[in-house]
């Protein structure tokens, strides 16, 4: 597994670095905006801009698989003393780690902003961040198995997901659900636990499906 992770890391070192720098800049812009007099809105927990780099996370395994296909690493890796499940695992782990890094940056920027404006750093903020991280991983869990079928399948799955999520979000934002009560649902520890369990189960299931797909594939 270690060799697979190393290969993926060396391959996408630049991409991850760019993603991190862009995230930092977008979050930093948020901090700067506040320093220049923007108000901290009551329900805004994170910068909208900070979400954009995160949208690339679910396609990270697809990008890695595409590079592997182009370079021939899939074949080279399969001939090495490494299990195919390790190849799959490295994609999941790298996505998870990249997601963790980005969410940590958003959290740190949020905490700094709140400290600057003497706002309370309450549990709600962290609940929101945790919910965001879990939803992001649900995205990844949905898209990743498709990248082991093929790049086209993965991109199609991601596009469908974006359309579904986009239209659901529009309905959700327009509906009465998105009010104080709707948000309070996220701040409930039971909701958080349910979301965590669902994410963990679906992530594991996605991992297993991907291994199953990749295990018997001719490379």
């Amino acid at each position: 597994m270690k060799s697979m992770i190393k290969n993926d890391f060396f391959t996408f070192k630049k991409f991850l670095l760019i993603l991190t720098v862009v995230s930092v800049i977008l979050n930093f812009k948020w901090v700067i905006d506040f320093c220049f007099g923007a108000e901290l809105p009551g329900n805004d927990f994170i910068s909208d801009f900070a979400l954009y780099p995160m949208m690339y996370l679910p396609v990270l395994p697809t990008l890695l698989c595409t590079v592997d296909m182009r370079t021939g690493w899939k074949q080279f890796g399969a001939a090495m003393p490494v299990k195919r499940s390790d190849y799959v695992g490295s994609k999941y782990l790298l996505t998870l780690i990249a997601g963790l890094i980005m969410i940590c940056m958003i959290t740190v920027c949020g905490v700094i902003s709140r400290l600057l404006f003497h706002s309370a750093i309450d549990a709600e903020y962290f609940y929101f961040i945790a919910a965001l991280f879990m939803v992001l991983n649900l995205f990844c869990a949905f898209v990743t198995p498709f990248c082991f079928i093929g790049r086209t399948a993965a991109i199609a799955a991601y596009m469908i997901l974006l359309v579904v999520i986009g239209s659901s979000a529009t309905v959700f934002l327009d509906s009465s659900l998105f009010d104080k009560q709707g948000l309070e649902l996220i701040f409930d520890i039971r909701t958080q636990l349910i979301l965590f369990v669902c994410t963990a189960v679906l992530y594991a299931l996605s991992w297993l499906i991907s291994v199953r797909i990749y295990q018997n594939k001719d490379l």
Partner: peptide, 25 residues
């Protein structure tokens, strides 16, 4: 094994290869 092409990322240098292979073998 040696395949018909060196199927590694073309951006890699010897130290990257050494690093990866030392974890695999």
């Amino acid at each position: 094994f040696v395949l018909d092409e060196l199927k590694l990322n073309c951006e890699f240098r010897a130290k990257n290869i050494n690093n990866i292979m030392s974890s695999a073998y």
